[in-house]
C-alpha cells in the first residue's frame, strides 16, 4: 500500500520569466537605419503588437552607438501618454533590442496626405499632445533636440507620441558646452543656426512652433536648402534679429546680419495663416520668438488661451487617419 503522499507543489521562487528573447516575436522587417533595424512583432504573453528596434552591435569601431545609448538612457526615464513607451530592453548575443510600442503612423504622413482635411480642432489636439509630451521631457530636464513631424508618431487610438530620442540629452549643467549641430535643419532654432553653445528647452519650443505652422500650411514652413539658406529663409519669414529685439545676439559665434529683413507685421502673418484665429497667431508668435529668452516655454504654451477658445481640441480617437492609399486597393482585392 502506498501511502498517499501529499506532494505540495514546489513553491516557485520569484518566478523568473525566461529570457526576454522568448517573450517577443519578430515578424516583419519594416525599416532599416544606420544603426538599427525595425521589426514588427508581438509580445508573446499578451499578444500585444510591438515594434522591435534591433540595434546592431559589434559593427562600430567604438562599441555601442551613442544614439542608441541616448535613446535607451532617456526612454528608460520617461513615462507619459505622449512619449513613446519603451516596453522592454533585451539582448541577444549580437544585438541590443528595444521593444517599443507600435505606432503605425506619423504626423508627416498625415501632413503630406492631401486627401485628409485638418480642422482647427485637429491641429489644436495635436499641438496639445505634442506640448504635453515635451513638457514632460523638459520638466525632467531632458531636451529632445530633434522634433519634427516625422518624429511625432500616431498610435492606433489617435494619441500622438514623441519618438526618436537619439539626439536627446540632459540639461542643467551650465559648465558644459552643447553642440549646436542638432535638430533637423528646417526645425532648427535661430540660436542654433548662429552656433550657440548654450541653449535651453526653447530650441524644442521653436521646433513646435514651426510644426504648428506646417500643420496649418500643409507644407514645410521654413524649408532651407542648406545651413546658410536656412538663415535666410528663417529671417525672411520672421525678420532678422537685431540687438534691439534680441540683446547680445551679435555675440553668438556664427552671427552675421546677412540681409536685414523687417519683422513681419501682424497683418502679414494673418495673410500667411488665413485659417488661424487671433489666439492661434498669438501662440505662434510666442513660439517663434527669435530671442530664446522671450520664446514661451511649455508651461506657458499649455496655458495659452488658444487651447481654451472654441473649437475644442478633437478627441484623439476622432482625429483624421491616413487615407486609404492607391496601393491599398490591391490589398483589398486580395482579401476578396
Amino acid at each position: 500500500m502506498s501511502t498517499p503522499v501529499v506532494a505540495s507543489p514546489p513553491v516557485p521562487l520569484k518566478k523568473r520569466s525566461g529570457p526576454a528573447t522568448h517573450n517577443y516575436s519578430k515578424e516583419r522587417k519594416v525599416g532599416e537605419g544606420t544603426y538599427a533595424v525595425v521589426y514588427l512583432g508581438h509580445q508573446v504573453t499578451t499578444g500585444r503588437e510591438i515594434a522591435i528596434k534591433e540595434i546592431k552591435t559589434g559593427i562600430f569601431k567604438d562599441g555601442l552607438d551613442m544614439s542608441a545609448l541616448r535613446e535607451v538612457k532617456y526612454l528608460q526615464e520617461l513615462r507619459h501618454p505622449n512619449v513613446i513607451e519603451l516596453v522592454d530592453v533585451f539582448s541577444t548575443p549580437h544585438n541590443l533590442n528595444l521593444v517599443l510600442e507600435l505606432l503605425p503612423c506619423d504626423l508627416e504622413v498625415l501632413i503630406k496626405d492631401k486627401e485628409v482635411v485638418f480642422t482647427m480642432g485637429d491641429i489644436k489636439s495635436w499641438m496639445l499632445m505634442t506640448l504635453r509630451g515635451i513638457h514632460h521631457c523638459h520638466r525632467n530636464f531632458i531636451l529632445h533636440r530633434d522634433l519634427k513631424p516625422n518624429n511625432l508618431l500616431i498610435a492606433p487610438d489617435g494619441q500622438l507620441k514623441i519618438a526618436d530620442f537619439g539626439l536627446a540629452r540632459a540639461l542643467g549643467n551650465p559648465n558644459e558646452d552643447l553642440s549646436s549641430n542638432v535638430v533637423t535643419r528646417w526645425y532648427r532654432a535661430p540660436e542654433l543656426l548662429f552656433g550657440a553653445k548654450h541653449y535651453t528647452g526653447a530650441i524644442d519650443m521653436w521646433s513646435i512652433g514651426i510644426i504648428f505652422a506646417e500643420l496649418m500650411l500643409r507644407v514645410p514652413y521654413l524649408p532651407g536648402k542648406d545651413d546658410v539658406d536656412q538663415l535666410d529663409v528663417t529671417f525672411k519669414a520672421l525678420g532678422t534679429p537685431t540687438e534691439q529685439i534680441w540683446p547680445n545676439v551679435s555675440s553668438l559665434p556664427m552671427y552675421n546680419a546677412l540681409t536685414v529683413y523687417a519683422q513681419p507685421s501682424r497683418q502679414e502673418l494673418r495673410n500667411r495663416f488665413s485659417a488661424a484665429t487671433e489666439k492661434a497667431l498669438d501662440l505662434m508668435i510666442m513660439l517663434t520668438q527669435l530671442d530664446p529668452s522671450r520664446r514661451c516655454d511649455s508651461t506657458r504654451a499649455l496655458l495659452h488661451d488658444f487651447f481654451t477658445e472654441l473649437p475644442r481640441p478633437t478627441e484623439p480617437r476622432d482625429l483624421p487617419k491616413k487615407s486609404i492609399k492607391k496601393e491599398e486597393p490591391d490589398a483589398k482585392r486580395r482579401k476578396i
Binding site: L64, K73, Y74, Q76, A170
Partner: peptide, 12 residues
C-alpha cells in the same frame, strides 16, 4: 554589452 545588461540598461 555585458555591463550594459547588468545595469538593466539604466544609464541615467
Amino acid at each position: 554589452f555585458i555591463v550594459l545588461q547588468s545595469l538593466k540598461f539604466t544609464l541615467l
